[in-house]
């Protein structure tokens, strides 16, 4: 804590940790003759990656999942944020909506998957619904809290300076909640990303979730692991993007 972090040391030790806890046990397992179905070797992984790239299965699956998650997430943002602002401002509406929000919050998104299949079949609409539902509540509650938490003196100060309601909203209230909103969006996107994979795992003919569950049925463990890596990378990239955005608005 007291001495400044040494980047080179951190990276070296981190790499050492990966080596000791992941690479070495993996290699030992492969060398000791574990079946490729349990753990494929590095060469088998590279072969599979090469094959996936040439047949464009991986790119197509990634594209499908990305389109779905982005659409569903956007849908969640444009519905949850305005509703959250309204509910945050009005104690009456908040009291009216709270029981409903509280009840649905505990019906986790995965539980909707079978019903979504019953209602929409395996169409895109069902998947969008699951993603939207997953993101909606994660965004709604922090938005409400952010609006309720706006410093009253800030609003009062703006009013004494002669600002209109509209100006106060766009120049005072909205900037005040943006940092909270971005944090909520970061969390919400991560939840949406989990939700689309879950939906694809259970009910889909395309996407990364489908790709890895299909590969599992065909006992192609290499493809499963490559899919996991891609899933992890996409999650990490979006997370980093949102952190960037958050830094931009830190006052």
């Amino acid at each position: 804590m007291s001495d400044r972090p040494n980047t080179a040391r951190v990276l070296a030790l981190g790499a050492l940790g990966v080596l000791l806890l992941i690479v070495v046990p993996w290699t030992l397992a492969v060398l000791s003759g574990v079946r490729p179905i349990i753990l494929p070797s590095g060469w088998q992984l590279l072969d599979a990656a090469d094959f996936l790239m040439r047949t464009d299965v991986l790119l197509h699956s990634t594209w499908v999942s990305l389109v779905r998650v982005n659409l569903g997430f956007l849908l969640a943002v444009v519905t949850a944020v305005p509703l959250g602002i309204v509910l945050g401002r009005s104690p009456l509406l908040f009291a009216a909506f709270e029981p409903v929000v509280e009840s649905f919050r505990f019906v986790i998104p995965f539980a909707w998957i079978p019903l979504a299949i019953l209602w929409f079949g395996t169409s895109e609409f069902g998947k969008l619904f699951i993603i939207w539902y997953a993101g909606f509540f994660v965004l709604l509650l922090p938005t409400i809290e952010a609006v309720q938490g706006i410093d009253k003196d800030l609003i009062a100060a703006a009013r004494t300076l002669g600002a209109t309601r509209w100006t106060i909203f766009w120049r005072v209230a909205f900037p005040a909640i943006v940092p909270d909103l971005l944090l909520a969006m970061r969390v919400a996107f991560a939840v949406c990303w989990i939700a689309i994979l879950a939906a694809e795992l259970v009910a889909s003919r395309a996407g990364l979730g489908y790709m890895i569950t299909d590969a599992r049925e065909l006992l192609q463990t290499e493809v499963v692991i490559i899919g996991m890596v891609v899933i992890g990378c996409i999650g990490a990239i979006y997370n980093a993007l949102f952190i960037r955005l958050q830094r931009l608005v830190q006052y």
Binding site: R9, V10, L13, G14, A15, L16, G17, V18, L20, L21, I22, A190, W193, I194, L197, A198, L201, G209, I212, G227, M228, V229, I231, G232, C233, G235, A236, N239
Partner: peptide
């Protein structure tokens, strides 16, 4: 520092995967 490497590597992989 040693555990941070594997943790940061495995963490983004969602549980579903």
């Amino acid at each position: 520092d040693i555990l941070a490497g594997p943790v940061e590597l495995l963490r983004p992989i969602s549980s579903i995967a």
